[in-house]
């Protein structure tokens, strides 16, 4: 039973191996494509920002005059946003995760909430903006204030925290729980004193990811109707505000009129990217430090 012509196979082999090699480099090129793009993007933005990004840019207020315009107000706005988003998502996200992992019976309700959360994660951010516009800005009458923006943003990033916290709680080994129960501790005592402390690194990583998403998100804020006017630096959560990405947005579209706005947008992007980079570095440090504990 000799159906296969060895000579033919040998001849084919050369082409097949060549093809394999060619495609290997093609695939590598595709892999590097994204990285090259990233490098160009960062270099380009950096070059655009040279000469504009200095200390006074960080401390000056917004102005129509590009020479003296700064991002003090926008940076303060972003910080204020985090003051809302941080505690709100932490409480709701971790609460939801504990409920789902520790209390809810695996059944219809459990899978309904779970499916609901994963579906929310896929809803476009602009739709959250519409929700915020209707409920927080208009119905509850908050206007385009920090609290309206913060609550909208919290709902948007909530799924990230829930999923991360769930994973963190799930990965707490059973023997720790058993040890606690074995000493007669109640369920809530076990969760509070054993499970949560053990899950904290995972939860924190998730929180940082969620906050970095919130810092960079623009669409929901735009939908809340935040004006491009020069706004005073906000002093409370009920004040109007602008945020770093909003500033990038307005300066970018206005760069058609005033060319220097492009440089201001680039400088703001650099600030934004540096903040995100620092936050993600912290997340990585936390993850590496607490990775292999059990």
């Amino acid at each position: 039973m000799e159906y296969i012509d060895r000579g033919h196979v040998q001849k084919k082999m050369r082409t097949r191996l060549l093809l394999n090699k060619v495609f290997k480099y093609l695939f590598l090129a595709a892999t590097l494509f994204g990285l090259v793009f990233l490098a160009i993007l960062i270099t380009r933005v950096f070059i655009d920002s040279i000469g504009w990004l200095d200390f006074s840019f960080l401390t000056n207020r917004l102005s129509f005059n590009p020479e003296i315009a700064g991002i003090k107000g926008a940076a303060a706005g972003t910080l204020w946003l985090m003051v809302i988003v941080g505690p709100v998502t932490m409480t709701l996200g971790v609460g939801t995760a504990i409920y789902l992992e520790e209390y809810a019976k695996k059944g219809r309700l459990h899978s309904f909430i779970q499916t609901n959360i994963s579906n929310l994660a896929g809803v476009p951010s602009i739709v959250f903006g519409l929700l915020g516009l209707t409920v927080f800005v208009r119905v509850l009458g908050f206007g385009s204030s920090i609290i309206a923006g913060g609550l909208t943003m919290s709902l948007l990033v909530l799924p990230i925290v829930v999923v991360a916290a769930q994973e963190a709680i799930r990965s707490v080994p059973g023997f720790l729980r058993e040890a606690s129960y074995g000493m007669g501790a109640t369920k809530w005592q076990t969760i509070k004193k054993v499970v949560l402390p053990a899950a904290i690194p995972g939860i924190l990583t998730g929180m940082i990811l969620a906050l970095s998403r919130a810092i960079g998100e623009t669409a929901p804020l735009v939908a809340l109707g935040i004006p491009a006017l020069i706004i005073p630096v906000p002093g409370s959560i009920f004040d109007n505000f602008t945020a770093l990405p909003m500033q990038v947005y307005y300066w970018t579209i206005d760069s058609a009129l005033t060319a220097e706005y492009l440089n201001l947008a680039a400088a703001t992007i650099i600030v934004l990217l540096v903040v995100l980079f620092l936050m993600n570095s912290v997340a990585i440090i936390i993850r590496n430090k607490f990775q292999k504990r059990y």
Partner: peptide, 30 residues
């Protein structure tokens, strides 16, 4: 402490319920 044990799941459920309210809010307003 007995009270706390009883209340905690209720409070946590309310937190989890926020995500459902969010969905209802989105679908409702739209």
């Amino acid at each position: 402490s007995v009270f706390v044990e009883k209340m905690v799941p209720v409070i946590l459920f309310l937190a989890a319920f926020i995500s459902i309210i969010t969905t209802i809010g989105i679908v409702g307003t739209l």
